[in-house]
Design a binder for these strands. Structure first.
Length: 293
DNA sequence: AACTCAATCAACCGCTCTCAA
DNA sequence: TTTGAGAGCGGTTGATTGAGT
């Protein structure tokens, strides 16, 4: 017995969204907030499935989205996070305010991968490409999947805390830098490379966002199952918050305007970079992992 | 100007996860 | 404990755009 489709696809529209549809969806969500996505198209008068509506909203229509290419610092952060988390795009996106997992995934596949390879870095393992590795790159998907497996394995071994993210309540709150990954070399390559462009996009400030609804945390992990219009008469106070309120505090600390003083790549020597939840900033910890526990 | 090819990115698909009944 | 609905995630596709010839 097969799984039921997420929605009745008969008569539903697919493909690119029209401005009319966008308007309907925006109007509905701004008026009613995000509720059960399954119910959204019906209530909003759209011939789309709920999944499509959710995707359109989270990836394109949300008012807190940043536009334009990722900045150099954002790219660095993506590389750093990818080296630790692998293809966990939603988790990576949760560290980049205003960016979606889809956007980051696309940017990774179209830009960053190439840049890293150009710089002699394997985008899967984040290690310098040896001549043999180069050969492996050309051997196809199987090899790639195996390498992804390696990264995933590293992720699961993330007991050694380096970077601790305050807002995350998931396993990556303690993500690690495995000693097997040579981030220093990666950083060096990045610094030497003229390839990264800076395209800073003005960040929408929290007070500029008018969304009377909760967001999905990082547009990914938290939904509002209990606050559906049709299923719950009351909405919990903590669920009514602006999307940006769930952005990582470190981003506010850095203001997202100037990453120039920030080295997203932990060094290999005396100190390691860790997020201090009390002071809301990253600190070199001299490897004192116990203090965070 | 016309054509081809590559790059980009919005959107879809199918699977997994979560949670309530 | 089981089951099913809904939401989320990651991989992939395909339409569009731009560069090169």
């Amino acid at each position: 017995m097969g799984r039921q489709p997420c929605c009745d696809k008969v008569g539903l529209k697919k493909g690119p969204w029209t401005t009319e549809e966008d308007k309907k969806l925006i109007d509905f969500i701004l008026t009613n907030g995000q509720c059960c996505w399954r119910a959204v198209p019906k209530l909003a008068g759209l011939l789309r499935c709920g999944k499509s509506c959710r995707l359109r909203w989270t990836n394109y229509l949300r008012p807190d989205l940043k536009r334009g290419l990722l900045s150099e610092s954002e790219e660095k952060l993506v590389i750093e996070l990818h080296s630790r988390l692998g293809n966990k795009w939603s988790k990576i996106a949760s560290h980049l305010p205003g960016r979606t997992d889809n956007e980051i995934k696309n940017h990774w596949n179209t830009h960053i991968k190439k840049k890293l390879r150009k710089m002699g870095i394997d985008p899967i393992t984040h290690r310098p490409i040896s001549s043999t590795d180069e050969h492996h790159h050309q051997t196809g998907q199987q090899q790639q999947q195996e390498q992804v497996g390696v990264v995933a394995g590293e992720d699961k071994r993330s007991e050694n805390i380096i970077l601790q993210c305050s807002q995350s309540q998931e396993e990556e709150k303690s993500v690690s830098v495995s000693s097997s990954f040579d981030f220093i070399e990666t950083d060096t390559f990045l610094q030497k490379s003229p390839g990264f462009c800076t395209d800073e996009v003005p960040m929408i400030q929290p007070h500029e966002i008018i969304v009377p609804c909760a967001s999905t945390a990082s547009y990914s992990s938290t939904s509002l199952p209990s606050s559906c219009l049709s299923s719950s008469p009351s909405v919990k106070a903590e669920e009514i918050q602006f999307p940006c309120m769930e952005w990582p505090d470190p981003m506010y600390f850095y203001g997202m305007d100037d990453f120039s003083q920030w080295d997203p790549i932990p060094n290999n020597g005396d100190g390691e970079l860790a997020f201090d939840p009390l002071n809301q900033l990253y600190q070199r910890t001299a490897g004192d992992q116990e203090s965070w526990n």
